[in-house]
Amino acid sequence: MQMAVENDSSVTEFVFRGLTDQPEFQLPLFFVFLLNYTATVMGNLSLMFLIGLNSHLHTPMYFFLFNLSLVDFCYSFVCTPKMLMGFVSEKSIISYTGCMTQLFFFCFFVNSECYVLTAMAYDRYVAICKPLIYAILMSPRMCSLLMIGSYLMGFASAMAHTGCMIRLSFCDSNIINHYMCEIFPLLQLSCSSTYANELVSSLIACIVVIVSGLVILTSYVSILLNIVHMSSATGWSKAMGTCGSHIITVSIFYGSGLLTYVKPASADSVGQGKFFSVFYTLMVPMLNPLIYSLRNKDVKLAVKRTMRRITM
């Protein structure tokens, strides 16, 4: 099937235009994003390591955080290494098969992250609004089902996007106005009808917004109403403390995503979109471990215990 697809398309490789074509910016950007990549890998690995080693972090909240770090860790391998190579080489080239593979994993991880964040919002809602039955509602079995569902939804979205992209023909230009194989920059290069692709993209976006967005919004509206009725200042502070990190992550992730895809049709908007996409493809995976660690007493305690074990 793969050979048949490649035979239908005269384009066998693509060239990334990257973030900028200004030579004087290439090396500085290489070091900036190399630092970003290193921090992303080390930060997420460290957080997963801490959660795995410390039994007091074996709770639903940290189970979801472990999965968020796992997605971000894998996510960082999808586009960053190729992007870094583009800064130090004359041309950043990717094969047709490599491009479709990158597109699949990009769609898989970005959609999975949406649903992992949704599960985390639901977990916070149950913890604050239904504390007496929290252990029942967020049992190990339920947590596992939520994560399996998140990955299955991400996989289904990736299969739909990639399957629709493979059926297209690419005849003339092979220069992608991006630093990775993204949906809309690729659609601009196709010489066949992209109606089905646009329809599928709109449908998947609607599902993500309705399922993920509605659950997150409903959860935090319920949490806010619950906090308003709290008489204890300590309870209010604790509730905000457990939700604050997640709200920051959701705001950055969904905010940059909306700015990227709000006007996907024109060449100008696609060009602007690649700069906004830096936030959710490169910045969010790096910031998540910091956001969830700096103000988190449990993680700080885990760091102290782990350091004590290593030094003993």
Rank of each mutant, 00 (worst) to 15 (best):
N7H: 12
S9M: 06
V15N: 04
F16K: 00
P23E: 07
F25V: 05
Q26I: 06
L29N: 01
T38N: 05
T40N: 08
M42C: 15
N44H: 06
L45N: 08
I51T: 02
N54H: 05
F64K: 00
L65Q: 07
N67S: 09
C74A: 14
K82W: 01
M85T: 06
M85N: 05
F87Y: 07
V88L: 09
E90G: 15
K91G: 07
T101G: 04
F105M: 13
S112P: 06
A121R: 03
Y122V: 15
Y125R: 02
V126E: 05
A127V: 10
I128K: 00
I128A: 01
C129K: 00
L132C: 07
Y134L: 01
I136V: 12
P140R: 01
L145G: 07
L145N: 13
M153Q: 08
M165V: 11
I166C: 14
L168N: 02
L168T: 04
F170R: 01
D172A: 12
S173H: 08
N177A: 12
H178P: 03
M180T: 05
E182F: 07
I183Q: 03
I183D: 05
I183V: 15
F184T: 03
L187F: 11
L189H: 02
S192T: 15
S193W: 06
S193M: 06
N197T: 09
N197L: 06
V208T: 05
V209K: 09
S219H: 03
S219P: 04
L225Y: 09
I227S: 04
A233K: 12
K238Q: 15
A239K: 02
S245V: 13
I248F: 11
T249K: 10
G255E: 15
S256R: 02
T260Y: 10
Y261L: 15
V262S: 14
K263P: 02
K263V: 15
K263N: 14
P264C: 12
V270T: 09
G271N: 14
Q272I: 13
S277Q: 14
M283R: 10
L287W: 06
I291P: 05
Y292F: 15
N296M: 09
K297A: 14
D298A: 12
L301V: 09
V303P: 03
